[in-house]
Simulated assay, not measured.
Amino acid sequence: MLRDAWRLAVGTLTAMPVRPPGHVDRQRAALAMMLAPLAALPLALGAAAVVLLGQLAGLPHLVTALLAVSVVVAGNRALHLDGLADTVDGMAASYDRERSLAVMKTGTSGPAGVTAVVLVLGLQAAALASVLAGASGVRPAVLVLVAVCASRSALTLCCVRGVRPAREDGLGRTFTQTVSPTLVLVVWVAAAAALAAAAWWVGMEWWHGALAAALATAVVAAILVRAVRRFGGVTGDVFGAAVEASLATILVALSASS
């Protein structure tokens, strides 16, 4: 079961070539979402390597940050950004639930979705550039690695029991309501501890990392509350929006401490 869950997590959340899972059920789906921070490790390592190489090459911090963010985007085929755009388009389209869901399913991005993508990517890159300006060497690279992995903890909250799917088909049907609140708490506490340790190692106060995780949790929870009110539940697109918002929040919080 663990092997199937791992393959499901890596195959869904990254562009890494992996064998398809032998069997997919709700138990394996729940475990895959809990493994999401670890499954994102290849993307995080890529971003960390770019940060380190950019500093060694003397690139401007903003250029290095944009390249690092680009690696993460390319590493998941822009899946989460697509979800962000569709979610915002759905919320902006209409107050009618069915109309909003239909807009999200079209696969095209409207003005609201494009604006959201630009703003969130801009926040991620600008915040990361600020973090890089406050530290040098391998330490900020490790902080970026931890931030990317920790941001994927958002998926456990999207799948917590009590948050129902907006549709009976698609990604939501398999993954939603599969993770218990206790396990969500365990994953987020682990993410907060990792961020606190990384922040301390970089030279920040340890609690800045923990605060970044707490703020990301609050932002993701707000997105879920809004999605449930507007769509009647969550979809795979909402999962993507939550991940991107989580990463942006973590980086912004860390930038305020650098």
Score class of each variant (00 low, 15 high):
249 T>F: 04
18 V>A: 02
207 W>M: 11
209 G>W: 05
52 L>Q: 10
180 S>G: 09
122 G>V: 05
257 S>M: 14
28 R>P: 01
212 A>I: 01
55 Q>L: 10
126 A>T: 15
49 A>M: 09
2 L>W: 14
66 L>E: 15
135 A>T: 12
66 L>H: 12
228 V>T: 14
109 S>A: 15
34 M>W: 02
97 R>G: 03
178 T>M: 00
81 L>F: 11
189 V>P: 10
218 A>W: 11
208 H>N: 12
23 H>P: 01
180 S>L: 14
131 V>M: 08
220 V>D: 01
66 L>N: 13
16 M>P: 00
218 A>D: 07
143 L>F: 05
103 V>A: 03
194 A>R: 07
1 M>N: 11
124 Q>N: 12
79 L>S: 09
158 C>D: 11
114 V>G: 09
85 A>R: 02
160 V>R: 12
123 L>R: 15
74 A>C: 09
157 L>R: 15
154 A>C: 13
221 A>P: 08
201 W>S: 14
154 A>R: 05
224 L>W: 01
109 S>Q: 10
83 G>D: 01
116 A>V: 03
22 G>I: 03
21 P>Y: 02
137 G>N: 10
148 V>T: 04
128 L>W: 02
222 A>D: 05
223 I>C: 15
186 V>E: 14
138 V>Q: 10
211 L>S: 07
60 P>N: 08
72 V>G: 06
158 C>P: 10
25 D>N: 09
87 T>P: 07
138 V>K: 03
139 R>H: 13
184 V>D: 13
125 A>T: 06
121 L>D: 02
